[in-house]
């Protein structure tokens, strides 16, 4: 099973093993990872699943759709080149052992 490591602003890291096809948001919410709310259940409508993907995994990510792009402009924490919506990134073999940072001020 691929794993996801969520790193909190405090430096604390949580590694979670998930089935392929699971989104980063769903993995975080099901496992109670702090800072990822996922209020809209993955409809790309709320931006409360915002995460920063470490640059070494950038190449392996799916492209950002228009829906995701416009919603990334509405995040609470600053949008950067590393910003993605956790609900729009699904786990695949290529992504196995991905590391992401949780924004510090996402309620």
């Amino acid at each position: 099973m691929p794993t996801i490591t969520f790193t909190q602003p405090t430096g604390e890291a949580t590694e979670i093993a998930v089935a392929e096809g699971t989104s980063l948001m769903r993995a975080a919410v099901t496992n109670g990872v702090e800072g990822i709310v996922g209020e809209c259940g993955g409809q790309a409508m709320c931006a409360t699943c915002h995460i920063y993907v470490r640059p070494e995994f950038a190449d392996q990510l799916p492209p950002i759709s228009d829906d995701e792009d416009e919603m990334l402009d509405c995040t609470t924490a600053e949008r950067t080149d590393a910003s993605r919506l956790g609900c729009q990134v699904k786990m695949t073999d290529q992504l196995s052992s991905i590391v992401v940072d949780v924004p510090s001020d996402q309620e």
Binding site: Y52, T76, D81, A82, D101
Partner: peptide
């Protein structure tokens, strides 16, 4: 945060740039 700044975009609703 291990990230660089993307070109500033503004949320059309709150006017927020992610402060």
């Amino acid at each position: 945060m291990s990230a660089t700044n993307a070109p500033a975009a503004t949320c059309p609703f709150s006017g927020d740039t992610g402060t």
